[in-house]
Amino acid sequence: MKKLIGNIMLTTALIGGAIASARNPPLWIAVGGALGVMALGILFRRQGEREELHKTAAHGKGGKEELKKSLEEALTEIEKVMEEKERDIEKAREKLGKVLEALENFTEKAQPLRIEGIRVYGEVMTSFSKAERHLNRAWSAYADGYIREGNAYLESGYAQLRETSELL
């Protein structure tokens, strides 16, 4: 509710402020009033957002546990890719492609982490992105027929993803 009120205040004040600013010269008093309402709207919005995030995290949704779960699932899938590559490298690469597509959703799921602080979020995302880049390189190397390079980066991507999970 607080978030909605904040959004409404922010939007109406933006429209009012933009109109007052458009005049030649701007109506500075109206612009000042709009900025004040926007600031209040932002306070409401941010407070409401934080409360929502805490609530969903308390229900086990969108929190660290869900993130960990999705990473564990990805790690299991990569283990399957590691087994598959011994039999059929093309199938393994296809599977790896699917894992990478699934991982793209991680960013959206990770947004609640921001309530832990931007530094925590930054560290988790840096670690995750490195893992993703290594897995991307493994995919490219397999596609180009460089199996040893692919294997090396599949392993390091896996290890890095495990590190991300531990970081959580």
Partner: peptide
Amino acid sequence: AGGLLGFL
């Protein structure tokens, strides 16, 4: 004016 609105 735009700068202040954008900042907020």
